[in-house]
Design a binder for these strands. Structure first.
Length: 986
RNA sequence: GCGUGGGUAGCCAAGCCCGGUCAAAGGCGAGGGACUCAAGAUCCCUUCCCGAAGGGGUUCCCAGGUUCGAAUCCUGGCCCACGCACCA
């Protein structure tokens, strides 16, 4: 397991000091204590409270085939931060968490443990499971016993603000949930959202089972594609059958290829007799065709025959070749040398091989007369791309497989997307290849000159070493996500949602359009049995689309256990859920049938009405294309509009030290591992700081280290006694002003789930402001400011570092828990632009002086500042006024300025300054203009001369530029302008 | 190919939606200083190039364009990551 150096660095760091610090602030001890307190006081247990605004956050339940890593941790925490934040805003917050066990992977993994497959053992070992424990995982039930409990423990360790009374697992192992899924499917079926159809899947002929990506030795990501079978009649009425993915090239056919060495069969397919290889007959049988094999023959037997080619309806010869892959297609290939490099090379090989021609008694004249026929125009290519690429790549013969594969890919891609059919292509002349492909196929099929056959898009090999084929499953149940009217409702739902980030909207809309009907049942795997057809088990993405509604009533159904043992809840029927979620039916009847108090049901109904819909569902971006979209679809099918989801959040894939986190790459960081290394609050801060938006968040261990130290610092600061003053100073107003702005920006960022930005505004910037404030206060802050700072900072940190802030909250005399306190308000009246402009001016002056010192290399003994003369201030004031009305014009400014007393005497200077000012003010913003003016710069600098002197290590004097008694050896005073004093250093 | 997100100083990363306050926040790394016997920690300063006066020059993937003005808007291109399905 590779991981950055956090631990090592921690260990080598300043041993004595470290020990002292750890002793002083024991974050882990604090965490354990507060987690216990939350649990004891049921702080996060949520129940409906009529009249109180509510907030319902969820995260898709994780799949229980292992410990959860920080990828899930991140998605979870980003929702949890919001839950804690909303609670501090006064919402009654529900944040439940369930666990997903439906589907194949647990079964597959258990089987592989049983078979002692080393890779699977390593996976478990890497999770930290001891060798002697591993054999237990041969039983799938063991996984379900271990991992949900472990995940609860991990999340509690992170300080999760979850109402654990509502947790559950899926599948029939938990009867009330099982009943809920059955109810959901009945509903969908009744609404005609579930349909039956055929469905092609990648299939292992040996296992007689579909092969998902996880079960493949080779060919991850390959999918079924449909080939066109072209039928070439022989004079006796039998057909040679060739498979192609390029039916649009039929107009360029010149001959047919068979492998003379390969065996073929004659088979009765439907009412016809087809000649093809045996493998193809087996595939066709799996694809719903009635096939019976009648006799066998060798390829050589077919060479030299003439067959009639479909579409062009012309006789072409059958010729020998060696390039045919017998595992793909039918073993017979139609030849289009103009566009298929294989065909061209095979033709060239044959034409130049008199011995071969003679061997098969082929007429050399006729074979040599075969020329490629140009059929497709593609920008950037000549008339014969197949020929062109072979020559360009220098392909020698049919044996040059690697180059031929490359050539095929290149020609196919550009031809498909950009090619247009030539005049010799009959009715398809001028049509784009992309379109013509389908049209031609349809026509040939309708004329019985063609048929279809499925193949994997690339080679797929099952774990059992068998090469996969495509099976067309009959009677497959689908969720009809392809239905346009259903799509329309999903779009409607999206339109009214709050999405974080906003760019998610476009993506979701796209996904909704892109989705096709979804096969929602399996023959294998854990899950709810399809209520009306017990051959099928409901598939795992389909049983988890609206279960957020289940959370609202789960506390009663589960009875405190992940697998419910509540007697009446083990007898639930559709009528129960109809009443819960729709309020329909007769409560009395339901109650008496279930053997439960009617009031219990009525209370539960109120829980649902109170909490639903969800306000936020957050996840990693991998679920957008399936779960997040399915969730919307199903809500629109089952629930009325007011119960559709209100908000989604999506984050990127978590990166660890800049690399993608994934089990297969061994770059995984399990929550429990992280918790061994860092305190929970540190991990939470690291996650919050990882990054916002759809960018992949990066878990930065250097940041964790810094956060660790800073949290301890904050604890010391917040709980320490501070030497404070009681008299007010100007800088106090500045600090409060900046503090309020920080609160404002933090609130906005929190609402948008931009947690990194929230930390920046609410923590880093606020800390920086405090340190400036301390410098400006000679380390004697005003007591009210210290108190305020501690309270505001602690509360802003609370959603991220709940343990430490509860400790601080408690020690500084707060009531209850910090999560129950009110989030800092923005006090508009404390926002003080004037106080801010003082500091801006002071800092920019400081910067200017430092710039001068840097450039000149002077070590200053004495520094003089000259504030702008009165007349410049007057001109400036006029200019500000004029700017409010529109673009500043120099002539108008001059006119007004010269009207003032004493201006005419220095008209030249006024003109120069007016021009300069016009330039400056052109770009100034309105509120910046407002800030100037009211400030008396001379007194301001005069009051702060001491501070500047300390900062710069020199004596600082302040003069008015128009003071005749000023000390000004270098005649710098002339440069002074409002908001920019002149400077002299020596 | 389609879709989504992105390409900013040595590295990480903000800004881009809403053009001027941008040589461009913050962090890391690096250099200098204060404190200290010293180290660590902490604090201060510097960190595109030039400059002995607060200035100038060249920059935000590339090429064009719009604009008085572009990291930010538009067009075209190049490059990177992820997804493209029946399954978590």
């Amino acid at each position: 397991m590779t991981r950055p150096t956090g631990r090592a660095r921690g260990a080598t760091r300043r041993p004595r000091e470290a020990a002292r610090r750890e002793q002083e602030v024991d974050l882990r001890e604090i965490e354990t204590r507060w987690q216990a307190a939350w649990e004891k006081d049921r702080v996060h247990v949520a129940r409906a409270e009529a009249g109180k605004p509510k907030w319902f956050s969820t995260v898709p339940y994780p799949y229980m085939n292992g410990y959860q890593h920080l990828g899930f941790g991140t998605s979870f925490l980003r929702a949890e931060f919001q839950s804690r934040y909303r609670r501090m805003l006064g919402f009654n917050v529900l944040h439940p968490q369930g666990f997903h066990c439906t589907g194949l992977p647990i079964l597959g993994a258990a089987k592989r443990v049983a078979e002692r497959e080393p890779k699977q053992w390593d996976i478990l070992r890497n999770m930290g499971i001891p060798d002697r424990e591993i054999p237990k995982f041969a039983d799938p039930m063991h996984w379900i016993d271990v991992f949900p409990a472990a995940t609860v423990q991990d999340l509690k360790g992170l300080g999760a603000a979850v109402d654990w009374t509502r947790s559950f697992i899926t599948t029939p192992l938990n009867p009330p949930y099982d009943a809920f899924v059955r109810w959901q499917f009945h509903h969908l079926k009744d609404g005609d959202f579930i349909r039956k159809d055929k469905h092609p899947v990648i299939w292992c002929p040996k296992d007689q089972a579909p092969i998902g990506d996880h079960d493949r030795l080779e060919g991850e990501g390959e999918t079924p594609v449909e080939y066109t079978l072209l039928k070439f009649p022989l004079p006796d009425g039998r057909f040679l059958v060739a498979a192609t993915i390029r039916p649009e090239t039929v107009y360029g056919q010149t001959n047919l290829w068979v492998d003379p060495e390969a065996p073929y069969v004659v088979a009765k397919v439907g009412h016809e007799r087809w000649i093809l290889n045996e493998a193809a007959t087996k595939k066709l049988m799996e694809q719903g065709k009635i096939v019976s094999q009648e006799s066998t023959l060798r390829g050589a037997d077919l060479i030299g025959e003439d067959v009639v080619a479909p579409a062009i309806n012309r006789a072409i010869p059958v010729l020998p070749s060696t390039f045919i892959d017998q595992g793909r297609g039918t073993g017979i290939v139609t030849s289009v040398p103009s566009d298929a490099p294989d065909d061209f090379v095979a033709l060239r090989d044959l034409q130049g091989d008199p011995a071969l021609l003679a061997k098969f008694h082929l007429d050399p004249e006729r074979v040599r007369a075969i020329k490629p026929v140009p059929i497709i125009r593609t920008p950037g290519w000549g008339p014969l791309p197949g020929v062109e690429i072979v020559e360009r790549l220098g392909i020698r013969n049919q044996g040059d497989r690697e180059k031929l594969e490359q050539a095929k890919g290149e020609v196919y891609k550009s031809g498909f997307y950009r090619g247009v059919l030539n005049e010799n292509c009959g009715p398809y002349a001028g049509m784009r290849v992309e379109v013509a492909k389908e049209e031609i196929r349809k026509e040939l099929t309708s004329k019985h000159q063609a048929d279809g056959m499925w193949e994997p898009s690339g080679e797929v090999v099952c774990r059992c070493m068998t090469r996969a084929i495509v099976k067309v499953v009959e009677d497959q149940w689908f969720l009809a996500y392809g239905d346009p009217s259903w799509k329309a409702k999903a779009h409607e739902a999206i339109a009214s949602m709050a999405l974080h980030p906003e760019s998610l909207r476009k993506w979701l809309d796209y996904v909704v359009d892109w989705l096709r009907d979804w096969p929602c049942t399996h023959h294998r795997g854990l899950g709810t049995i399809l209520p009306w057809d017990s051959d099928w088990v409901i598939e795992s993405l389909s049983d988890s689309t609206i279960y957020m509604a289940y959370y609202t009533i789960a506390h009663a159904l589960q009875g405190g256990s992940l697998r419910s043992a509540v007697p009446w809840a083990n007898r639930l029927d559709d009528a129960f859920f109809d009443y819960m979620f729709f309020g329909t039916g007769d409560v009395r009847a339901v109650a008496s049938r279930l053997g439960v108090e009617r009031k219990v049901l009525e209370d539960l109904r109120r829980e649902f009405q109170y909490w639903y819909p969800i306000d936020l569902r957050n996840t990693g971006k991998d679920l957008v294309q399936n779960h997040m979209a399915f969730c919307l679809f199903t809500h629109t099918a089952v629930f009325p509009r007011e119960h559709w989801p209100r908000g989604y959040g999506v984050n990127g894939y978590v990166r660890l030290a800049g690399r993608k986190m994934s089990k297969s790459r061994g770059n995984t960081w399990y929550i429990r591992e992280a918790l061994k290394e860092w305190p929970a609050d540190v991990i939470r801060l690291m996650v919050a700081n990882g990054g916002d938006g759809l960018d992949d968040p990066n878990l930065d261990v250097d940041f964790a280290e810094a956060a660790d130290a800073r949290l301890r610092d904050w604890f010391r600061f917040a709980t320490a006694k501070h030497a404070a003053r009681r008299n007010r100073r100007g800088i106090d107003a500045w600090f409060l002003s900046v503090l309020n702005r920080a609160v404002q920006k933090t609130r906005t960022s929190m609402e948008e789930m931009n947690y990194k930005a929230a930390l920046r505004h609410g923590y880093f910037d606020l800390q920086t402001a405090w340190s400036w404030y301390m410098r400006r206060s000679e380390n004697r802050p005003h007591e009210a400011c210290v108190r305020r700072f501690i309270e505001v900072q602690t509360k802003i940190l609370a959603p991220f570092a709940p343990h430490l802030t509860d400790e601080i909250w408690h020690r500084t005399g707060g009531d209850g828990y910090v999560v129950q306190s009110e989030y800092p308000e923005i006090k508009e009246e404390e926002i003080d632009p004037k106080a801010e402009v003082v500091e801006i001016l002071l800092q920019s002056t400081l910067d200017d002086i430092r710039e001068i010192l840097k450039v000149t290399g002077i070590v200053p003994k004495r520094i003089a500042l000259y504030t702008a003369p009165e007349w410049k201030a007057q001109v400036h004031a006029i200019a500000r006024e004029l700017s409010k009305e529109g673009p500043l014009r120099v002539n108008v400014l001059m006119e007004k300025a010269l009207a003032l007393r004493g201006m005419r005497e220095r008209a030249k200077d006024v003109a120069a300054y007016a021009k300069q000012l016009a330039e400056e003010l052109k770009h100034a913003r309105a509120d910046d203009l407002e800030r100037f003016g009211a400030l008396d710069e001379f007194s301001m600098f005069h009051e702060n001369a001491q501070f500047l002197g300390t900062e710069l290590g020199a004596k600082v004097d302040v003069y008015r530029a128009d003071d005749p008694h000023r000390w000004d050896p270098a005649k710098k005073a002339d440069r002074a302008t409002p908001a920019r004093p002149a400077i002299y250093v020596e």
